[in-house]
Nucleic acid binder design. Structure first.
Lengths: 213, 213
DNA sequence: CGTGCTGTTGAACGAAGTCAACCCTCGTGG
DNA sequence: CCACGAGGGTTGACTTCGTTCAACAGCACG
């Protein structure tokens, strides 16, 4: 584990040594691939701090960002014995890992993960609705609302993702995402301070667009 | 107990109260809505036998089938305190239910559900890739492979879903699904004995289409 | 100042959606 | 036993939304 993290952090590498201990915290730089789709699944991980994304690839290179993760979210899952997704940090992040065997030995851990799996599964259900049935504009509105919790009212949201990454999350192309942002701006629903700095002006209209999600 | 079963089989009776018996089995007829999106989430359920689908609706009536369930799969999930999806039987089915509180009291149950959630979450990840990045033909190929396990080689697959339901699962229209079936038939990858009776003739080509999934 | 990214915008194209006609199968009742 | 009707499925013609291809703009960095 230790080598993997350092290996992948490349030039960003910071913490020289992180022991491979149960529940150990790892700090990882932004834009680092922590897990590779198809690698043997040995450990299960949690995001403690920061943001990450899970991605899947098609043989011809088409990519889907299947899930966005924040603090508390779990990743490193496997249907059989290999990881189903790659996992990449969007920001610097702190993660913790557990041996897969610990799930059986530690009921408290199992209970916590179970709870978390449930919310992630529900999030995936919403995402399926977005990918399967929503227009480009609706998808982008949904995306922004999802990232902007109620609390942050007049606040400005910093996007840690490029247009391409957002597109891969929403099942669109980067051009279409860009056009959708422009359209939302034209309609006065959002303001773009910079390309990665968004303000939601008309939350109700946004919610209507996103299907009251 | 008995009454509830009959009550449900009659027609889609909205919201029958389920007896609070741990692990009771319920037999339900085909095409019955067992759970309604938005209802208060009291119980968590497992499919014992048969097939079901989970659906979500947009205010304007657009529908997405977010998940297909078979024996062992869990449903009745909620991110907050209400069900995130409706659940409907595709065939006659046997289900069992647990009080949500049982998750904390019963570690064996929690462990089993955890395992199951993991595979369902992985299935959702695949599904996101399908919905976000695959063409119509690829989606239908993927769908058929998913329903046709390796074992059944020359066998014929009975589809328990209409074209509309398949379309809602794959994020397409029923016409597009129909055209995709015809195209697969034209190419000799499948044979359609009847509209709901499919045979896979060229598994390799199908797998290539579906992205080696 | 270039140079290299990322993002925006325009024009043309194409895959899937829409609308509509028709077909097939099956169950029912004359 | 056949005729009919209803529901699901197929196919065709046309439209539309998002993609593709391409040019250009803003900005950070050397």
């Amino acid at each position: 584990m230790r080598q993997i993290i350092e290996e992948r952090t490349g030039s960003y590498s910071r913490h020289a040594s992180v022991p491979d201990m149960h529940g150990a915290y790892l700090r990882v730089a932004a834009h680092v691939t922590v897990l590779h789709e198809g690698d043997t699944a040995r450990r299960i991980m949690e995001v403690v701090e920061g943001a990450m994304m899970l991605t899947k690839l098609l043989p011809d290179g088409r990519r889907q960002v299947v899930e966005l993760l924040g603090p508390g979210d779990v990743f490193g899952l496997a249907a059989c014995d290999v990881y189903a997704c790659s996992a990449e940090t969007l920001t610097t992040a702190v993660i913790t890992t557990h041996d897969r065997g610990a799930l059986d030995r530690d009921p408290a851990l199992a209970s916590r993960l179970l709870r978390r799996f449930e919310t992630q599964l529900c999030a995936m259900h919403s995402h399926a609705l977005v990918l399967g049935r929503m227009s480009a504009l609706e998808r982008v509105a949904f995306f922004l609302l999802r990232l902007m919790p109620e609390s942050v009212v007049g606040g400005t949201l910093h996007l840690a993702m490029t247009r391409q990454e957002i597109a891969d999350f929403l099942g669109l192309t980067l051009e279409t995402v860009s056009r959708a942002f422009s359209e939302l701006k034209r309609r006065g629903l959002v303001a773009l301070l910079r390309a990665d700095e968004v303000q939601i002006n008309d939350r109700n209209s946004m919610r209507r667009l996103a299907g009251a999600a």
